[in-house]
């Protein structure tokens, strides 16, 4: 039962990977432009000298992706390369490969997103649970309207406001980049704290905006759960209020909340991309922005593919953890 469930989830993950690759391959075909030639033309138009080694790349590109070959053959070799995580060279940063650039940027984004998502989900869920609980202190309720209002605003817009307040007006925190210019990278206390200082504002702009949403959703789930028969029976059993709250109400309300988390990951990432852009945080989002500015098709494709696969993986992990949270799930015929 369990194995079939995991196999099915893994199948969905593979399907997502395949879809991402296919999207990457066919979407650019719609416009019919050849990314490398477009880039060359642009550079020629700007009057600059063509980057050294660019001809080499064009030659290699044409033998591998030659537009003279049948579409299906091109698709086949594209899938083959993608499966080996080979996304070709970055057109704008030749001779660096797309893979190198992504590997450099990925830890920044993963670090930022993992921390902010976990924090905001945990804090928001807890807040929402407490809000629905009749015995929690009154002042909690006054906290919520501002958080709900924040929840309606995009991450990056709130980020702009934070930059203005904390980096421009009072200058407590750095406003740009992932670390101070000229800092020596490495696992030293100095560098780590430098990175932490640079991460505070981007992280806050994600956390403060998301918390209200999770709280709102959790409160709704709690209200539903608290009306369930098993909560009434738990009270009739004379269980302690904290037992009823944690093990009967929260424990059950968290199930739909977790499903919502899996579904929200894509949205959170989309928002984080823009946060990285305005903070110049050296993650995937800023790299993507740079790629768009430089019309670096291969880099854009590589990033889109990597992100979709990474999110697919995160969803897969959540899906596999889920039956452990909800013992009913592996018995249902739901996919």
């Amino acid at each position: 039962m369990q194995a079939a469930y995991i196999a099915r989830r893994f199948g969905v993950f593979l399907l997502i990977v395949w879809l991402a690759a296919t999207l990457n391959f066919f979407l650019p075909k719609i416009s019919g432009q050849d990314p490398v030639r477009t880039k060359l033309l642009q550079q020629a138009a700007l009057g600059g000298a063509v980057q050294s080694g660019m001809e080499e790349m064009v030659k290699e590109y044409n033998t591998r992706f030659g537009l003279d070959r049948p579409l299906l053959a091109q698709y086949g070799s594209y899938l083959y390369d993608t499966a080996h995580l080979d996304f070709n060279y970055s057109i704008a940063n030749y001779p660096r490969t797309v893979r190198e650039l992504i590997i450099e940027a990925l830890p920044w984004t993963v670090g930022l997103l993992a921390t902010t998502t976990l924090l905001s989900f945990t804090i928001g869920t807890l807040l929402g649970a407490l809000l629905a609980w009749p015995r929690s202190p009154r002042w909690l309720r006054t906290l919520m309207p501002p958080l709900w209002a924040l929840h309606a605003i995009p991450f990056f817009l709130f980020g702009l406001i934070l930059i203005y307040l904390f980096a421009f007006q009072v200058q407590w925190l750095p406003m740009f980049g992932g670390y101070s210019p000229g800092a020596v990278q490495g696992f030293t206390w100095r560098f780590v704290s430098d990175v932490a200082m640079h991460s505070i504002l981007p992280a806050l702009s994600i956390i403060l905006v998301s918390v209200g949403g999770w709280a709102l959703a959790m409160r709704g789930m709690m209200v539903t759960t608290m009306g369930e028969d098993y909560v009434v029976f738990a009270e009739a059993e004379g269980l302690r209020a904290t037992t009823v709250f944690l093990r009967y109400c929260v424990r059950n309300a968290i199930l739909p909340q977790t499903t919502a988390l899996a579904l929200a990951l894509g949205q959170i990432l989309s928002g984080a991309v823009l946060v990285e852009v305005i903070f110049g945080f050296p993650g995937i989002g800023a790299l993507l922005f740079q790629a768009i500015q430089e019309n670096d098709q291969f880099l854009i494709q590589g990033i889109v593919f990597t992100v979709i696969v990474a999110l697919g993986l995160a969803t897969l992990v959540l899906d596999i953890v889920y039956p452990w949270l909800d013992p009913r799930i592996s018995y249902r015929k739901l996919s």
Binding site: I16, I30, L265, L269, N295, V304, I308
Partner: peptide, 21 residues
């Protein structure tokens, strides 16, 4: 719909926008 929601919308939109024109 479920699979589509797993995918970060903005990135796909970027890919489409970059590809079209």
């Amino acid at each position: 719909a479920d699979i589509g929601l797993t995918v970060p919308g903005l990135l796909v939109l970027i890919l489409i926008a970059v590809s079209i024109k």
